[in-house]
Design a protein around this nucleic acid. Structure first.
Lengths: 175, 175
DNA sequence: GTCTATAGATGGATAGAC
DNA sequence: GTCTATCCATCTATAGAC
């Protein structure tokens, strides 16, 4: 069983992702986490502390993911493409939650996401050794990711992207 | 001078884009529009009516934009790529504002954005006559657009996308 | 059409019991 | 560490004057 602290952050993220920041109130988070508002505020003295706690966890997960991508047997491009599919993993949820917060002009959230993208780009560029192509792969995966995040209907996109990346030879790389 | 109604919607959109839905309160919208809260509520009896009014205006602008794209002298792909740059136009603002609302599980906003994308895709597919390529162009432009929307630092992306689209021959099309 | 005043509900946060 | 009770600010919405 996760710690209360983690269950609270999970609840905060889930509400941010599912309903947006407006609905992620202390009351709602407490209820989702199965704790009282007082209990929540013991762990996170203010709503802003929830944001900080969430971004800290995201940075941890991000560092681990970049390492996993670097040594993925199928190559970084294929790994990145696969993990652009929205799996509902804890990491996914934390990224989207951070995106929600960053849209409220929160510099800490924007910078956490920027650093994540930078780390991924470095791995792509290492393996592709083609700056333009690395950026394009990242953009395509961003788009797949964000479209899904926004609930847009784009089932045909993934096969199209795979086909185009094959035309460009981007799927041939090895770690 | 714009009508009061339009100034109110402009203010609502500006707050959604700049600060997020949480900050787009009736008080804040009224102040930004230079009208009292009572005055605002005369035109839009509830906050939800602001959303509906905003989406109506977006649909109008969207229909006009798809037509402009279809007959653009530089071709639909180049037009679409150029207008993916965030210009701060009224249309831009309305799209991003709708994206903010759609993230709160608002089916009306999601559907308005979906319809817009569908209309653009049709034009791209007409001119490219390559389904995969049309989807890819759209995804790349989405990514450029959304990255900018989210305040991510990606100045190098546009030239990279242009270069890759040139490799694919996607920039050669004519209306 | 626009304003002020105010009601009623909800949000963030504190105090203190257990 | 977790809970209940409560305070105060803010938010949506209404009423009614001009």
């Amino acid at each position: 069983m996760a710690t209360t602290r983690d269950r609270i952050l999970n609840a905060f993220e889930a509400l941010l992702v599912g309903q947006g920041s407006r609905s992620a109130t202390l009351d709602a988070v407490a209820e989702e986490a199965g704790v009282s508002k007082g209990g929540l505020l013991y762990h996170f003295p203010s709503r802003d502390d929830l944001v900080v706690g969430m971004l800290d966890r995201l940075r941890d997960m991000g560092a681990k993911d970049a390492e996993k991508m670097r040594s993925a047997p199928q190559g970084a491009v294929a790994y990145y493409l696969e993990t652009s599919k929205h799996t509902g993993s804890a990491f996914d949820r934390a990224m989207i939650a951070a995106a929600r917060i960053s849209q409220e002009s929160d510099a800490r959230a924007s910078s956490a996401l920027d650093d994540l993208r930078e780390a991924w780009f470095e791995v792509l560029d290492e393996q592709l050794d083609d700056d333009e192509l690395a950026r394009t792969v990242q953009l395509l995966c961003d788009a797949l990711y964000f479209n899904e995040t926004m609930g847009l209907a784009e089932e045909a996109s993934m096969p199209a992207v795979r086909a185009i990346l094959a035309r460009l030879g981007a799927l041939d790389v090895q770690p």
